[in-house]
Amino acid sequence: MTMALCTGSFDKLIVAGIILSGAVAEDMDVEIYVLLYGAYAFKKENGENIDTVSEYPELKEKLKTSLKEMKIPTWVEFLSTAKELGNVKIYICGTAGKIWGGEKVSDFIDLADDICGIGEYVDSAQNADVHMLI
């Protein structure tokens, strides 16, 4: 499975984490390409601190409370568990990284495996059985 992760909102990142968990349970190899706002969320100083939602901003606190009550992991925890259990690679788009001041993989949270160019993403998407854009 290939996933393009364009979002920097924690709600959509959790969705990505849940889908990723299902893919890993199915023993799928997964490549995640982190684009634009996704790269912002992956910056070392952001990660778990991301507090933006993509829709219904008035429901943000309700969402956060429910997630906590239901013991739903954070998006970083979802991705971390998926990497422990399966073959998941995470690549940060070089251009997106640069936009947010990150040029090296060490500028991003430890889950990132490398910096990549768009050709690698397109090639991965072309060869994947499942391709998602979030």
Partner: peptide, 14 residues
Amino acid sequence: RGTACPGPLLAAKK
């Protein structure tokens, strides 16, 4: 018990 999807599935997989 007490975990929501995909918690039980991941626990089973593990």
